[in-house]
């Protein structure tokens, strides 16, 4: 039996095992290498062991950041209270807030893309500009943004908006244009007006694809957010990673990286589930 057959059908258990194989192999390879390094040098900080990472993550999840003052009676606080005051929770909250504001700000871009596709005058007005804007490397604007908006929240959010919104606008534009012309003509013959067609026919049809497009751009949103936080911030997950880098705090950095990946994965899963629930017709189409 050849493994490289196009029409091969792996059974359920084989497929499941194969899908986890690289995770297992990567984890084992890391811990083996870490063990070896610690065998040679017990003070090695480049590749922390499992127990070191666990301890560091536990500290991050239950204790405040070092730079914060320890509150009175902290020792008597409940587990939830300790987690609420912890470094990990505060960093996650700060990054999450910026992330959610940025994602919310993508939706006006969706509406602009829709109107550009539906109304030729609006399309003519914006299209060339957005296409050009899309080619500007957002990170190259970072110094300008810091000068223009300062190093507060606004500049970080503007970086994300400038970096991702043009892509979302153009994607929505193309998706709107791909709705069969017959449906628009049909809607006119059924008495629908311009905006009814734009919102009730075209937007409703493309919305699942728009959500997928936003899902695909979540990593880009996070990338720009991390760039902003690493350069100018006093809190957030990327700020913490950049800070710990100075102290070679790999035992905290690695769990933080995995935590960010897990959060993004959960957001992606949530959006995917929401998409399937809201649009049962789309998944099966």
């Amino acid at each position: 039996m050849s493994l490289l057959r196009i029409r091969a059908v792996p059974n359920r258990y084989t497929a499941w095992t194969l899908s986890w194989f690289l995770f297992a192999a990567g984890t084992l390879a890391y811990f083996y290498a870490a063990q070896q390094r610690h065998h040679e040098n017990p003070d090695d900080r480049v590749m922390p062991t499992v127990s070191q990472m666990f301890t560091a993550f536990e500290d991050a999840a239950l204790k405040p950041a070092e730079e914060e003052e320890v509150q009175e009676g902290a020792a008597s606080q409940s587990l939830w209270q300790r987690m609420g005051n912890s470094m990990l929770w505060k960093d996650t909250k700060a990054t999450g807030r910026r992330f959610l504001i940025s994602v919310a700000l993508l939706f006006p871009g969706v509406l602009l893309g829709l109107h550009m596709a539906m109304f030729p005058y609006i399309g003519s007005f914006f299209l060339r500009f957005v296409q050009f804007f899309d080619k500007i490397v957002a990170l190259s604007l970072l110094p300008i943004l810091f000068i223009a908006f300062g190093i507060d929240e606004l500049s970080k959010i503007m970086l994300i908006v400038i970096g991702v919104t043009p892509t979302i606008i153009l994607d929505t534009f193309n998706l709107s244009k791909s709705v069969p012309h017959e449906q628009i003509v049909k809607a006119f013959t059924l008495g629908a007006g311009e905006f009814t067609i734009a919102y009730r026919i075209v937007l409703k049809q493309i919305f699942p694809r728009v959500l997928n497009s936003i899902r695909l751009n979540l990593k880009a949103v996070m990338l720009f957010l991390f760039a902003g936080e690493m350069i100018a911030s006093t809190d957030g997950l990327a700020y913490r990673i950049a800070l710990l880098r100075r102290h070679m705090g790999m035992d905290t950095i690695l769990p933080y990286v995995l935590w960010v990946a897990l959060l993004l994965f959960l957001v992606d899963l949530g959006m995917s589930t929401l998409n399937r629930t809201l649009h049962p017709w789309f998944q099966e189409a």
């Binding site: 069969p180 017959e182 449906q183 003509v185 049909k186 809607a187 006119f188 013959t189 059924l190 008495g191 629908a192 026919i201 409703k204 049809q205 649009h279 017709w281 789309f282 189409a285």
Partner: peptide, 27 residues
């Protein structure tokens, strides 16, 4: 195009996001 002419094309005649009932009641 307006309501003075009904239209049945060869393809894409129905709105995929609406049920059959939703398609018929749309007008």
């Amino acid at each position: 195009p307006d309501r003075s002419c009904g239209y049945v094309p060869q393809r894409y005649s129905l709105f995929p996001d609406k049920t059959v009932l939703g398609n018929v009641t749309f007008g």
